[in-house]
Write a protein that binds this DNA or RNA. Structure first.
Length: 259
DNA sequence: ATGGTTGCAACGCAA
């Protein structure tokens, strides 16, 4: 029996959050950590700090905004950093393969507000994602798609559905795009294993949102149909959100048990 | 209540 623990965390600046990330890795010891909003270029990525804890890092970063990275205990192959035919300067996707598992780390655009240019970019991005995942499923049966989706899939995933109605992160087109992705052959591991739990992964920095637990579940770990039966646990860990100078997102992680 | 806070980097932008 081997267990495989995979995590995702929007760190909102790896430079600022590095101590939190190192502490959390030491405590939870995931096999893989996918990070978003690293906001750091590859040349100054803190590879050595992670190597001390036994992780190899791959970064697809940029200055100031966006940036994704994956930590893994083994060598990763088939690195992918942008959709075919979409020359996007924003570093938002990182796909890697280790063993027989394909991992796709996402920082889906926030969308700013419904109807804005950034919202349109988000929907366009989601279309490219759908096409890409469709192709990936033909190549790899075992896929984990995880990251900051910036989409709360259902009413149970926001603190006050009436307040969120029609708003960015919860609008119908975004939620429909999320369902379309599941339709390709993926399962939201948190929701299938915790059908009634109303827990959040992100809280706005403003207005004491975390203290009031006014948040949304927008960070997800999807498993392809071939992997779902091996997933035994999918968790949100709100603890680091309460630490000093936190990210606005909590880490999430899922555990798979293989024979 | 159309605010509020954080990170970046530079006096605004993105989240």
């Amino acid at each position: 029996m081997t267990t495989f623990k995979i995590a995702s965390w929007n760190v909102n600046s790896l430079k600022v959050r590095l101590p939190h990330v190192l502490n959390w890795l030491n405590e939870i010891k995931p096999d893989v950590l996918a990070m978003q909003e690293t906001k750091i270029i590859d040349a100054v990525f803190p590879y050595d700090e992670f190597a001390k804890q036994g992780y190899v890092a791959i970064s697809s970063g940029q200055k100031t905004y966006n940036g994704v990275a994956i930590l893994w205990k083994e060598k990763a192959l088939d690195i992918m950093t942008s959709f075919p035919g979409f020359d996007d300067p924003q570093r938002r996707i990182l796909g890697v393969t280790v063993g027989d598992i394909r991992v796709i780390n996402l920082y889906i655009p926030n969308g700013q507000s419904v109807g804005s240019e950034k919202y349109q970019y988000k929907l366009t991005w989601l279309n490219y994602l759908k096409e890409y995942l469709k192709q990936e499923l033909l190549k790899y049966p075992r896929i984990i798609v995880l990251g900051d989706f910036n989409i709360a899939p259902q009413e149970i995933d926001v603190y006050e559905p009436l307040l969120w109605q029609g708003k960015v992160l919860f609008s119908e087109p975004e939620r429909a795009a999320f369902q379309d992705i599941l339709q390709l052959g993926f399962v939201d591991t948190y929701r299938i294993l915790n059908p009634m739990d109303k827990k959040f992964s992100w809280w706005d920095y403003r207005l004491y949102a975390f203290k009031r637990n006014q948040g949304a579940r927008i960070d997800h770990i999807l498993a392809s149909d071939a992997l779902v039966s091996y997933c035994r646990q999918s968790t949100i860990d709100p603890t680091p959100r309460g630490w000093e100078r936190p990210s606005d997102h909590a880490p999430v992680y899922a555990e798979f048990h293989f024979n």
